[in-house]
Design a binder for these strands. Structure first.
Lengths: 234, 234
DNA sequence: ACAAAAGTGTTTCACATACACCCATGC
DNA sequence: GCATGGGTGTATGTGAAACACTTTTGT
């Protein structure tokens, strides 16, 4: 227990599950591996953890490498550690998932990795346990987005209610009633109506909204609707 | 990226946050370290991940080593990886939390580790980032127990409603109304009333209940109360 | 008979849901 | 003038919360 022996050391990688939303569909950014093993197959973007780097640092670095983005929403998903998950080497992988504004994503960087956005339902066959990672990420996203307003991280600064609703519908694979939906999201007080309309997708046009960043920060945890009644809390 | 170089390898440990409930208070099992570094200080029970072991395997092994228990509720909490978290070596730690029936715990095993149960509010100073681990575990427990009926994992086969209520009150540090509480838990259909009463803690005595294991399994996920209305799901 | 904890029911209110019509505009 | 998608209001039901008295029994 005390011998920090060399033989107990492991290779540790990070893998990034990157979600984006194009206004219609929830999407996932995958790369085509340009190196062995499994060269030519699709996978999540990943990389090895360096000696002086935390897992978060590594995931941030890897994400930036692929997308050019920093300061985006990222959350540790799970540590995958089956000794046989990579058939060639024993490599543990810490999976992170990110929510990015797909418009800020810098295409040119991705060319290097042959990256492509995939609809969730249409992802290709993936290496190792990356499919499990994605399934778990999706589940966690559903779980968390039901409680915290994280889906705004996928949207541009200005967005319309119909867009927001499509996003929720995509995440939950559900059809929602637009009257109830708009009442619910507006009742949070998190949205600020703009004067301009988005007029690409309809003749009438839909008003833009912006997120009230201050309230967003403040309400991020308050969004919880299941803890016992606040005034019973000691 | 392709060079799985030796120098990228890391020491990886697991640490176990072990919760128990004595009928009154939510408690935590800690050990007094009998080895360097930090010999003599309190810490979580942990151990290094072995070359052919998954992190889950390692945590299961470590938990059994301390408590003698297998097949208990265990969940991966988080991978802690700050390069400086252990000042002597770079060691990442994957934290797991467990919920055990404190009565099944085998005291004699723990003597070897000088283990003791602590009330959450009265935990001593701990090594490294173990305090952070515990805080996060508690938060996750609150989060999860609000949605899934996991707290039964802390109780013996037979328990009373007042005990169950104390448990919830301990986890949320809250005072609950017993009428509303009993209506709510009984409405889940998860509890089966027994004929015997527990007569230690009151003159009148409180009826024992058992968990309906089949319904528990079936309802474990159905307990969710926030997903969009089921009949809207595709 | 009294103290101590168990057990039980009703009212009120907020929120979630179901549901249908009018509006603005480009063509 | 019509087709397309945007925007709004109401009625109903369910579940959460507040609240107080009776029961049992050991001493």
């Amino acid at each position: 227990m005390t011998n920090h022996s060399r033989q107990n050391k492991l290779l540790v990688a990070v893998d990034c599950i990157i979600f984006g939303f194009d206004g219609q569909e929830l999407k996932l950014l995958l790369i085509k591996r340009g190196f062995e093993p499994e060269k030519g197959r699709w996978s999540l973007m990943g990389g090895f953890v360096q000696p002086k780097e935390s897992f978060e640092d590594a995931a941030t670095r890897v994400l930036k490498q692929l997308t050019g983005l920093e300061d985006v929403y990222m959350e540790q998903l799970y540590a995958f550690s089956n000794p046989d998950r990579d058939p060639t080497d024993r490599i543990a992988s810490i999976a992170y998932f990110s929510l990015i504004d797909i418009n800020k994503y810098q295409q040119q960087l991705s060319d290097e990795f042959h990256a492509e956005w995939f609809q969730l339902a249409k992802t290709p066959s993936l290496i190792f346990d990356h499919r499990d990672m994605i399934d778990m990420a999706r589940e966690k996203l559903q779980y968390k987005a039901a409680i915290h307003p994280i889906l705004f991280e996928l949207l541009p600064d200005k967005f319309t209610l119909p867009q927001l609703q499509s996003l929720y519908e995509g995440v939950y694979d559900a059809v929602l009633d637009k009257r109830n939906f708009s009442r619910k999201v507006l009742s949070t007080g998190l949205l600020v109506k703009q004067k301009e309309k988005e007029k690409e997708t309809s003749k009438k046009g839909a008003f833009y909204f912006k997120l009230d960043k201050k309230k967003y920060q403040k309400k991020f945890n308050a969004f919880l609707n299941f803890i016992p009644n606040p005034h019973n809390l000691k």
